[in-house]
Write a protein that binds this DNA or RNA. Structure first.
Length: 481
RNA sequence: CGGGGCGUAGCGCAGUCCGGUUAGCGCGCCUGGUUCGGGACCAGGAGGUCGGAGGUUCAAAUCCUCUCGCCCCGACCA
């Protein structure tokens, strides 16, 4: 009866719960360097699954992977005025190497627009070279003041797509397409409902014409930006001289996009589906989808049970599932249950003497509920259970989001909402920076997105939630990660 | 950088106010045995520069000074 690794309940302290859940699942550990983190095998396995799913989606939309250097000449960053200003405070700079001061300091990439567009300038000559569709998987460094495991660390892993196009419309199409990819990934793989939309000028990427994002509401009613795409216009093309000959024989600058999604998503996964026991992995991103636990007393029982458990595990592996058979001796089944639950394994199959006699396994879902599955239909039964868990997680998250969304908020409601429970607040917006800043000052909430049409309210708000003047666009406010 | 908390065994902590001899407890770990359908039990065992430096003292985990680091909350950000 020894409860050793109880974690802080969400209701008591959400931040503490998050740390406990991440540590209990052994996703990550603190590093000797302030602000950095070690991604442990359990966490990295989730990242690998995210990479596999996204990489396929990127390739299917015509992108190719490449790799650009970690170190960037400092002067590159300075070529785009808004960009350098946006990143200056958080850039780490190498000034000394090889035992001497460098002639020109090298920055450790906070993002790779500059060094990539320097290459693009060499590679692109003709409209026939366009579109150029590149992605890279990389680590980047941004010197953050305050860090949290996965959610904000000094170094993190991400992918960054960089593309060049003949005209504005094609670049816009690309930025929109990749936003749709992120949305689909979030919904279908992460089981995480998202809002899509455009960022306000004050929230957009430094150097971009427009920034789009997918935003998801976490269980503490704060929003996380789960993926972001930028239409960069010709800003970087002009700064780096990325020109091409048009079909008509003229000379023009390319139109660029960039888009990224990071290991932060793992934090989003934890905060979307986790409960007071620990993390819950949606089956499609679960490093272990099914754990098989044999149960027995005597040696004779062990023999019979093990035989069935082995066979079950093997047939599931052959069926394409990620399966762990937990045959550890000297550990009671209950102890194993708690361990795997803490790692978020969506489905546990118990195999005991009674099950062997009935030619079944007993399936316990991480999301609740137990039911037998006949051995004869094991693969199909497990597939159905995992699909139900996947869609159930999405539905639950979606219902939670809807329950924590308010529409047509007034100034008083916005203030009260953000001072209290939080959540998504839809309301009218006059579009003025002045109001945006006043709201942020008063409520700590920011405009997460100006939502795309499908997410907007049936009747557009008439007046700005803050100043009461006519609304020009609907906005979604929330506190954010 | 401001406010709050904390550094004692792998993890979680007690001991610190009021200095005193071999620094303790739970979990975990190792060995053997009995167990095993929701966190097992018994017996034996390993494991410590008390974050670091300096000082006070016959004597410091404990008192003083400095310092390093971590977590949480706030100002910046994916």
């Amino acid at each position: 009866m020894s409860q050793e690794q109880g974690i802080t309940p969400r209701a008591k302290d959400f931040s503490a719960w998050y740390n406990d859940a991440v540590m209990r699942a052994e996703l990550a550990d603190y590093s000797p360097v302030r602000g950095c983190m070690v991604i442990r095998p359990n966490g990295y396995a989730i990242w690998e699954l995210i990479q596999q799913a996204l990489d396929r989606m990127f390739k299917d939309t015509g992108h190719r992977n490449a790799y650009f250097p970690l170190l960037i000449p400092q002067s590159f960053l300075a070529k785009e005025a808004e960009h350098v200003e946006g990143f200056a405070p958080e850039v780490a700079v190498v000034t000394r190497a090889g035992g001497k001061e460098l002639d020109e300091p090298l920055v450790i990439r906070p993002t790779s627009e500059t060094i990539i567009y320097d290459s693009f300038a060499k590679w692109i000559h003709s409209y026939r070279d366009l579109p150029l569709l590149i992605n890279q998987w990389a680590n980047i460094v941004r010197w953050e003041m305050r860090t949290r495991l996965f959610l904000r660390t000094t170094e993190f892993l991400w992918q960054e797509g960089h593309t060049a196009h003949v005209d504005e419309a094609d670049a816009e199409r690309e930025a929109r397409q990749m936003l749709a990819v992120y949305r689909r990934f979030a919904e279908e793989w992460m089981a995480m409902p998202v809002l899509t939309g455009v960022k306000t000028d004050s929230e957009k990427f430094a150097g971009a014409l427009r920034t789009y994002a997918v935003e998801a509401l976490m269980q503490d009613n704060k929003s996380i930006q789960a993926g972001t795409t930028h239409h960069l216009g010709q800003n970087f093309a002009k700064a780096f001289g990325v020109q091409f000959q048009t079909a008509a024989g003229g000379l023009d600058y390319v139109w660029n996009t960039s888009w990224g999604l990071s290991t932060r998503l793992i934090g989003g996964l934890v905060m979307t589906h986790g409960d007071d026991v620990g993390i819950v992995c949606p089956p499609r991103l679960a490093p272990v989808q099914v754990v098989v636990v044999p149960i027995y007393r005597s040696d004779a029982e062990r023999t019979a049970v093990s035989e069935v458990a082995d066979r079950a595990a093997k047939s599931l592996r052959d069926g394409g599932f990620r399966v762990e058979l937990d045959a550890r001796e000297g550990m009671k089944p209950g102890a194993k249950y708690y361990e795997w639950e803490g790692q978020g394994v969506p489905l546990r199959l118990e195999v005991g003497p009674k099950d062997v006699a009935k030619e079944q396994v007993f399936a316990a879902r991480r999301t609740g509920g137990k039911a037998p599955i006949p051995l004869a239909g094991l693969v199909d039964g497990v597939r159905a259970a995992l699909e139900e868990i996947q869609s159930g997680l999405y539905q639950a998250a979606r219902e939670r989001r809807e329950a924590n969304t308010r529409r047509g908020v007034s100034r008083d409601e916005l203030v009260a909402l953000m001072a209290g429970p939080g959540g998504f607040a839809f309301g009218g917006f006059c579009g003025r920076l002045e109001c945006e800043l006043a709201i942020k000052e008063a409520t700590k909430a920011t405009v997460r997105v100006l939502p795309d049409e499908e997410f907007r309210s049936p009747t557009p708000p008439a007046t700005c939630a803050w100043c009461g003047s006519p609304s020009v666009v609907e906005a979604v406010w929330a506190k954010a990660y």
